[in-house]
């Protein structure tokens, strides 16, 4: 019997429809088809960052997570795979895109498979995905598929883009259906850094035997080193 997977598309495109969202949707469509061939079903939800822009700005300056942002975080927390797509501005990913990922808890996306995608008006921005975006997603401990997607104006009329979309989608399906995220989280979750209430409010384990907990209960932090 097939499994049901949750795919989340995060798009920082600004027009409606945007080529950034279009690129992400093409990936999502291929993921659904390829998973279907393995008798798996995929449900897709979309986080349009344009609609969260003011809450993202508020969160950056005041630590206050608004209700739409909370909903987006909960969606990502449940994601089995992510397609993250942004326009390129001034030789970098959109500030809206990077700001959104910067306010997430460090442990929210651990071991989740991700396709990274970017759109631009010129092919000269082609390395933004590999040079800049991968670092951010490495920090978040996601697993980014080998094929990065980039579409400038001319790519939209080139069948090469479809081939790369196919490849990226296949890689994502392979990671998503392999149980990689589940293995890592089940067997190694405790070896990553967490804060109480992190991972979108779900990380609530308390180790009562830690050194700090013993210190809290009247224990000792050790002795001052000599000299």
């Amino acid at each position: 019997m097939g499994q049901n997977f949750q795919l989340v598309v995060v798009s920082a495109g600004t027009s409606d429809p945007s080529s950034t969202r279009l690129l992400a949707d093409r990936v999502a469509g291929r993921v659904t088809t390829l998973a279907g061939k393995k008798a798996q079903t995929v449900g897709t939800s979309v986080v349009e960052l344009r609609e969260l822009a003011s809450e993202i700005a508020n969160a950056l300056v005041s630590n206050h997570i608004g209700p739409k942002l909370q909903k987006a975080i909960a969606t990502l927390q449940r994601a089995d795979a992510i397609v993250a797509s942004t326009p390129v501005y001034k030789a970098g990913a959109s500030g809206l895109f990077t700001s959104f990922f910067q306010i997430l808890d460090n442990d929210l996306l651990i071991a989740k498979p991700v396709v990274l995608a970017a759109t631009a008006g010129t092919a000269r921005h082609a390395l933004v995905v590999d040079d800049q975006m991968r670092g951010l997603f490495a920090y978040l401990r996601t697993v980014v598929v080998p094929t990065s997607l980039f579409a400038s104006t001319e790519d939209w009329q080139d069948n090469g883009l479809n081939k790369r979309i196919d490849r990226a989608a296949l890689e994502l399906v392979a990671l998503m259906t392999s149980g990689f995220e589940k293995s890592v989280r089940d067997e190694s979750w405790g070896s990553y850094q967490h804060e109480y209430g992190s991972a979108g409010g779900t990380e609530l384990s308390i180790d009562l035997d830690s050194d700090l907990m013993k210190l809290a209960a009247g224990g000792s932090a050790g002795q001052k080193s000599a000299g």
Binding site: Y196, I206, M213, L215, A217, G218
Partner: peptide, 13 residues
């Protein structure tokens, strides 16, 4: 705000 060790110490004493 979000430090269990502080809550633990308050409770302990």
């Amino acid at each position: 705000i979000r430090t269990p060790e502080i809550a633990e110490q308050a409770a302990y004493y």
